[in-house]
Design a binder for these strands. Structure first.
Lengths: 223, 223
DNA sequence: AAGTAACGGTTAAATAATTAACACATAATG
DNA sequence: CATTATGTGTTAATTATTTAACCGTTACTT
């Protein structure tokens, strides 16, 4: 099956757009839209239609020439590609404020990532319930990961502990780490890490804000 | 001052690396490192030295040929560029789980974004204190933004309300919105929005996990 | 004091991503 | 039944980003 291997050689930029396509399509589906053209879908996402078709082209045809996409076919196709055709059991490591926020974030479930384990070392937190899931002691980590067949972990521990915990997760069979600690994790090949750096986000926003303020100043002095 | 205008015409990819440079440099500064070459710094960030020099080149010389960068000069230079030479007062709109998590996220202060206002409409939350800041009623939004000269807002309200609140923020003088709601905000020119889509993050991770699993399967069948 | 190794700035080349263009297919229309 | 409008898949052109190459400087070594 050459397709599979090929379908993994896709630019990151395209991968990041897949969830956006899916989200919009689900929205259309919810209001009863059956067909949608590349132009309509692209326009609603503020991108070019050719880019959307180009993105889809990595995965083979979703329609045939002359006919728009059928929402009912496209949604499961994208879910398959993204890997959420079946629910993906997920763990949250670190039940501090951020961990709690994510554990209570209903969308995680809806989007295909049911939380099947929440872990912490703090005795004050252990036993607390969030959306029906108790906060468990880290001692249970390996057992629960195995029992629940968890493959993805969301890491919300202090950055000092991130690497140690990550090692343990990898050892326990986790192959996808969504890392919220501002640390670069070292992981072996065959493990995917995605760093979510809030600081990067707000700083690049700050850069643009500074540029806006500067251009406003210039406009004034130019008058 | 042509430099200012030019310094805003910088690729997004470069902008996103600036915080990483700054973070690493601060780390070096903390352990007493005075000089660092482009190669050393790049290597520690797992990028090419030429890319780092190319990035810096957008903003003019930070050193002179033959001499490595001086950490003590580079740090404030980057802070200036990013726009955090002075602390940037920030507001959090929505004191739910995520808003609370961010309000309690000490790094925000440290990185130059002191929280000067937390807002919600829920009477049960109003009055609660987080890091010395009370949760305020939305009625006070405009007043506090003005008094505290807040320019950046972190939006953590339900997506149904995101656009309405965003409009109000813009009206009140906010020019940078860090949006955690899974909605595309429409804002006038002169306002910067950065969308932080957790679902996008975890889904692109899921895509890579699926690819890893597939390639493992193939390896087995190939043997 | 000359030679050498290391360095940043700068420009050019290579690579990747986006956008446009086009060929062909479909269904609706007169 | 031809014609037209709309549409995708696919390839080509354009644009953006990354990487490499080179030049002039600096400080160190012998």
């Amino acid at each position: 099956m050459v397709k599979n291997r090929k379908s993994c050689e896709v630019p990151d930029a395209t991968i990041h757009r897949l969830p956006l396509y899916l989200e919009k399509l689900k929205l259309l589906q919810a209001i009863g839209v059956e067909d949608v053209s590349s132009r309509q879908l692209a326009e609603s996402l503020d991108i070019k239609a050719s880019q959307l078709r180009h993105d889809f082209h990595y995965f083979g045809g979703f329609s045939r020439p002359g006919r728009p996409y059928q929402v009912a076919k496209l949604v499961p196709a994208l879910e398959q590609i993204i890997g959420i055709a079946e629910p993906v059991p997920t763990a949250i490591i670190g039940a501090g404020h951020l961990g709690q926020a994510l554990a209570n974030y209903q969308n995680l479930d809806v989007q295909g990532f049911p939380v099947r384990g929440i872990f912490d070392t703090n005795p004050k937190l252990i036993g607390l319930e969030m959306r029906g899931q108790p906060v468990r002691d880290m001692d249970e980590l390996e057992k629960v990961i195995k029992e629940e067949k968890i493959r993805i972990a969301i890491l919300t521990v202090p950055s000092t502990q991130a690497q140690v915990v990550a090692n343990r997760l990898v050892e326990a069979g986790i192959i996808g780490i969504f890392n919220f600690a501002p640390t670069d994790l070292k992981v072996p090949e065959g493990v995917a890490v995605r760093n979510e750096r809030l600081a990067v986000g707000i700083m690049s926003l700050s850069f643009k804000v500074k540029c806006i303020l500067q251009s406003q100043d210039e406009d004034i002095t130019e008058v």
